[in-house]
Design a protein around this nucleic acid. Structure first.
Lengths: 330, 330
DNA sequence: CTGAAAGCGCTAACAG
DNA sequence: CTGTTAGCGCTTTCAG
């Protein structure tokens, strides 16, 4: 920038004025400066700019699980769509590897002084964030609320969605309903299981822990778990699955085995409508989660980031939808 | 940091040494400093740090299309996985809205002084990047090579993959093979179409432009295009589709119409194996594309970013895979 | 082993 | 309309 100033025969401040479209620069000077700028291929350094003005880095951090999972991809996409028009960039870090990684990523993002954080928590303890929150970094939790820290969150009505799904299976005459779900350490799994319990209790059905398998994290593991359920004891006549990964696995196993059971799964997914057997899903809108989370974060930022506004919590609705081909399962 | 120094009774340089694990600090001093740091909740400001040391921001920019598309999601995920162990963050910007947006995002990323760029180009003209490349910003193009600029790229063997797919349809006896594809402005569409032409030519079949529809950008549009092909003139007996979006649309239409034609589609996708009709896909590995692209970028960075190493080009292979249920279509 | 001074590239605050 | 001076928070350089 001093180079530009020298060649244009003006002061650095004038150059600064020109590149920031500030008023009070004569048109002649402007043109001279712009000419030199394009001559030199000069580009403003936003890092230094933000350092000086101190307040904003015009970037938000996104801590998220596997982007290859369309669920997370949709969230990320929606966030970027909200950030872009505001000239904010999104810095992403994967939390998939576990709670330690989550903390590392958050720390790295804070060191870079992102203006705010959007977090899909992995661990079940966010106390490590309280000091950060108190220091005034706005953050919004997506999909799962923070544990041990007060912050905004956007979540799904997990319990109700699960209850409706399982009640639907019961309504179809099932009394022995197995579960194939992701790790119980994940709070959404817990909530969805609570909905399962609710529905059983409401129908006066005793829960049989032997047909509840928690842990499978991808379709292959869920498929194996389903087989295990059939190969020992009295198999379930229907399955409830806690997310799209496990739903896919269970459907695969059932298809292979000749569709021996009904299925109700949490999360909708593409092509669900074209799978060769009927089932139902608890549908919701991941993009809406990203969108609302980002809006929430920006409303905090616009409000000047006073950390003492009480945490807001948005709960997104679910709907039970019939999927798959064949006689509708709803 | 001056605060920390004062309270610890040392100089800022010593604090700097401690937070960077530099040698030559007595254990006693270290402990004193660390104590004050955690007392104050001090966090190193990486922005300022990078400003001074000038060289690296420890971040790479990713300009990519819709992250909600699993194809792009897989790429992004793989890139993050390569960057994370090197302590690099990934700053993402969506290019989906078109070439202008692509340029804006790239400019914003460069102003932030990312160390390198990974780009999935939207436009068909990257001449705007030559000055940036000459200034020494390493960049790698993914999925499509740059036009009008010299840079590394990782692409798929589009032409060969398409040729094999269409040859396969011909081998099954088809001579009237329709195309439903994304915009011809996208270079991958062009290449895949060239493969289609190759296969027809090799079999001595005349191309009928009336059954080649280019433009559909999502499944719904592709579905409508398929219907249009059936509702006017002599319909094709088989379809070639240029990406997973259009494949899904065509399959939807065919299923609705009672599977009146064979299909070969570019790109594999989840659950393809469970769809209720047989078809083939040109499979490849998007994650591998992201991984290799990121590795390429880092190898440039490690090499000090000398812009004059000649551009490398990685071409990823494809395989023809039978998908769907029913009598194998391969 | 430790510190003082200079400065990264830019903008804020105040002059002219 | 334009310029000068300071300084963002840190690291580099060189001197103790």
């Amino acid at each position: 920038m001093p180079d530009v100033a020298r060649l244009a025969g003006v002061s650095v401040k004038t150059v600064s004025r020109v590149i920031n479209d500030e008023p009070n620069v004569s048109t002649a000077t402007q043109e001279k400066v712009r000419a030199v700028i394009s001559d030199l291929g000069f580009r403003r350094n936003d890092v230094a700019r933000n350092l000086r003005s101190g307040t904003t880095s015009s970037s938000i951090g996104l801590v998220i699980g596997d982007l290859a999972n369309p669920f997370y991809g949709a969230i990320a996409q929606a966030i970027e769509a909200v950030a872009a028009p505001r000239q904010f960039m999104v810095v992403v870090g994967s939390s998939e590897e576990g709670p330690e990684r989550e903390q590392e990523v958050v720390a790295a993002l804070c060191r870079r002084r992102v203006d705010g954080l959007l977090i899909t928590p992995t661990g079940d303890d966010q106390r490590y964030l309280v000091s950060e929150i108190e220091m005034g970094t706005p953050m919004v939790f997506l999909d799962r609320p923070p544990v041990g820290a007060k912050a905004d969150s956007v979540v799904i009505d997990n319990r109700r969605g699960a209850r409706e799904a399982v009640a639907h299976l019961i309504g179809r005459g099932h009394r022995r309903i197995g579960v194939v779900g992701d790790s119980f350490a994940i709070s959404t799994t817990k909530e969805r299981l609570r909905g399962y319990d609710d529905a059983l209790a409401a129908a006066g059905i005793d829960k049989d822990p032997a047909i509840v398998i928690l842990g499978p994290h991808d379709p292959a593991q869920a498929e194996a778990a389903t087989d295990a359920l059939f190969d020992q004891g009295t198999p379930p006549t229907a399955f409830f699955t806690t997310n799209n990964r496990t739903t896919v696995g269970v459907l695969r196993a059932l298809w292979r085995r000749g569709h021996e059971a009904d299925v109700a799964g949490f999360d909708d997914f593409e092509l669900a409508d074209l799978l060769p057997m009927p089932f139902v899903v608890v549908a919701h809108d991941p993009a809406e989660m990203g969108r609302q989370g980002a809006e929430l974060l920006f409303s905090r930022l616009d409000a000047g980031g006073s950390p003492k506004l009480k945490p807001r919590r948005v709960v997104l609705p679910t709907t039970l939808v019939a999927r798959g081909l064949g006689p509708p399962a709803i």
